[in-house]
């Protein structure tokens, strides 16, 4: 049996925030591997460093020390310009608050990553509309975010995270603003359209309802990764995680 290719390799990641009065160490030497084709969930109590970790993995925050390779590329070895380019081409984002541009239609919102990558607007919007069909929002392509429900907005955000075929998708609490049923629909959609053998997904969540959909779950606490569990063993793990969160 061969080991799947690594999408993300973190070694001894340390990040400290200086708040003026005091220094807060958000990450205290994190080691983590995420494989291609894998859906990894990061769980843990608030303030344990989950968001800091995915910010560093996504290349939007620099660590103080340690190494973070994404598809074999160390973020710290990239120039600012190359970092932007790498991020634009390889990373997709899904946010808790959707973060759709309120004055753009659903299709235009989905088209944004393509436009950032230099695709002409008309072509980008056409591709975006096709992807919206795939996430079941073909008829709402011209709607503004304010005309969509929370679940529909998150589906638009998922389409946006996929439209430019990124190899890593970073999701921050994608279901926590949604009701139970909608949350399940969203994670099922993510699992069905986003998880492929040439892509990795990392989801930060508190939402115990969706743990079953992960391939592995990393439990964080106080800037450390306490444990990483494969979800076939999740029943016991789920219970432990619920205790933590």
């Amino acid at each position: 049996m061969t080991t799947p290719e690594l999408a993300v390799k973190c070694r001894q990641l340390v990040k400290t925030y200086d708040t003026g009065d005091q220094k807060i160490t958000a990450l205290q030497g994190i080691d983590l591997d995420i494989h291609m084709g894998e859906l990894m969930m990061l769980v843990g109590p608030s303030g344990c460093g989950k968001t800091t970790l995915i910010s560093i993995i996504a290349g939007i925050l620099d660590q103080d020390s340690g190494q973070c390779d994404v598809f074999g590329v160390d973020w710290l070895h990239l120039s600012s310009k190359d970092k932007l380019l790498f991020r634009a081409q390889n990373i997709g984002f899904v946010f808790q608050a959707y973060n759709l541009l309120p004055t753009l239609t659903a299709a235009e919102n989905v088209a944004v990553p393509l436009i950032i990558n230099g695709v002409k607007r008309q072509l980008a919007v056409r591709k975006a509309a096709e992807l919206l069909e795939k996430v079941g929002l073909g008829k709402r392509a011209e709607s503004l975010p304010s005309q969509l429900s929370g679940g529909q907005q998150q589906r638009v955000a998922i389409a946006r995270s996929l439209v430019h075929n990124p190899r890593l998708i970073v999701c921050d609490e994608p279901t926590s603003a949604l009701d139970h049923q909608t949350g399940i629909h969203v994670i099922e959609l993510l699992k069905s359209v986003a998880v492929t053998s040439d892509r990795a997904l990392i989801i930060v969540t508190h939402d115990a309802r969706i743990f079953d959909y992960a391939d592995r779950i990393a439990k964080m606490d106080d800037g450390h990764i306490d444990s990483v569990a494969v979800v076939t063993q999740h029943s016991q793990f789920n219970k432990e995680v619920e205790d933590v969160t």
């Binding site: 932007l84 991020r87 984002f93 973060n99 541009l101 950032i116 990558n117």
Partner: peptide
């Protein structure tokens, strides 16, 4: 600002 932040995160210079 948040929208600009999103664009920045997505790779806008």
């Amino acid at each position: 600002l948040r929208q600009f932040g999103v664009l920045k995160a997505m790779g806008t210079s």
